[in-house]
Amino acid sequence: MEQSVGSLQEQALKRKERLKALRGRQLQGREPADGEPDRKRVADEAETEERHRELKLRNYVPEDEELKDRQMPKAKPASVEDKVKDQLEAANPEPVIEEVDLANLAPRKPDWDLKRDVAKKLEKLERRTQRAIAELIRERLKGSETELAGVVGAAGAEEGDSD
């Protein structure tokens, strides 16, 4: 769709007229627009009044007497020492309890209940094992006594021959 040069110029003129009307309304204190509802106009007017009331000059030192009333008092810097002290106190660890039972802290092994139940049976077996070991040692000693007597007798016989 091609538009002729004449229609484009007409559209540009209409835009310029709308912009002039808009600027005129802004300069004259916002006259009502054709399609604008009344409550929207009232809300916009209240907003602009609040903006003017909220004007506060923090860093700017005005020369005008009216603006000097809106100047904020100089802010005092916060005490850094107090903040640092608070942080240092927060960083200090609380004293740890001196006595710690490691048996309570250490996790139990998964077979601890089995060991507890089998402990009585193991005691009986341990006693039987000790008795069996003692009997074996006695038997060897009896057998070694006879061997010792034979060795001693043989040694005595050899001494008599060499004399």
Score class of each variant (00 low, 15 high):
residue 86 D to W: 02
residue 86 D to A: 14
residue 36 E to K: 01
residue 93 P to D: 03
residue 128 R to Y: 05
residue 157 A to M: 05
residue 130 Q to H: 10
residue 58 R to M: 11
residue 62 P to L: 00
residue 139 E to S: 08
residue 110 P to D: 03
residue 46 A to H: 07
residue 55 L to A: 06
residue 140 R to H: 06
residue 111 D to F: 14
residue 79 S to C: 02
residue 121 K to Y: 12
residue 102 L to G: 01
residue 8 L to G: 02
residue 102 L to K: 02
residue 43 A to W: 03
residue 16 K to M: 11
residue 142 K to G: 09
residue 85 K to Q: 08
residue 130 Q to V: 12
residue 158 E to H: 12
residue 57 L to S: 00
residue 116 R to V: 10
residue 85 K to R: 13
residue 125 L to E: 09
residue 120 K to H: 09
residue 132 A to V: 05
residue 117 D to K: 15
residue 147 E to W: 04
residue 134 A to R: 06
residue 68 K to Y: 00
residue 131 R to I: 11
residue 73 P to M: 02
residue 162 S to K: 15
residue 11 Q to P: 00
residue 119 A to S: 08
residue 160 G to P: 10
residue 114 L to T: 10
residue 32 P to W: 00
residue 114 L to H: 09
residue 72 M to C: 10
residue 115 K to V: 08
residue 162 S to G: 09
residue 68 K to E: 01
residue 117 D to L: 15
residue 72 M to R: 08
residue 61 V to E: 09
residue 144 S to L: 15
residue 73 P to A: 01
residue 120 K to P: 04
residue 106 A to K: 13
residue 125 L to D: 06
residue 61 V to Q: 10
residue 16 K to S: 05
residue 106 A to Y: 04
residue 53 R to D: 04
residue 25 R to H: 02
residue 126 E to H: 07
residue 136 L to P: 00
residue 122 L to Q: 07
residue 149 A to C: 04
residue 101 D to C: 02
residue 100 V to W: 00
residue 149 A to D: 10
residue 47 E to L: 15
residue 112 W to L: 13
residue 78 A to I: 12
residue 82 D to F: 07
residue 55 L to T: 06
residue 90 A to P: 02
residue 155 A to K: 07
residue 78 A to G: 05
residue 10 E to N: 05
residue 95 P to A: 01
residue 122 L to N: 03
residue 143 G to S: 08
residue 80 V to D: 05
residue 2 E to D: 07
